[in-house]
């Protein structure tokens, strides 16, 4: 039994240190990637579409909301190219 408890302490220590280390790496990798992408690949072509009605009567916030909604529902694969008011 005491051997098992010793193992439990080892497991607690090794386990938590490993999980923290890996998630620390996630943070470091994420930040490094963001830094490099911002520096070398900053052009994001997937901006919201312009108001296609030609009247300028769709508020930019609404356009952004529609684009975000479509991206969310289609898992990022869908693209809004035209918004028309009926």
């Amino acid at each position: 039994m005491s051997e098992s408890f010793d193992q439990a302490w080892v497991l607690l220590g090794v386990g938590m240190v490993t999980v923290f280390s890996v998630l620390l790496l996630v943070v470091i990798i994420g930040n490094t990637l963001i830094f490099f992408v911002n520096r070398f690949f900053s052009g994001d072509s997937s901006g919201p579409p312009a108001d296609q009605t030609g009247k300028g009567d769709i508020h930019p916030a609404k356009v952004a909301a529609i684009v975000a909604g479509v991206k969310n529902v289609t898992g990022g694969r869908g693209n809004v190219i035209d918004i028309r008011k009926k």
Binding site: T18, V22, L25, I29, I34, F35, V37, N38, S42, D44
Partner: peptide, 26 residues
């Protein structure tokens, strides 16, 4: 401190790099 200018590129590179690093560590 900073904003992500091209989230799509980050999202594509992130799983590849993380996968390699985790495979080495655990």
């Amino acid at each position: 401190k900073f904003k992500i200018k091209n989230i799509k590129a980050v999202k594509i590179i992130f799983p590849i790099v993380l996968g390699v690093v985790v495979a080495i560590l655990v």
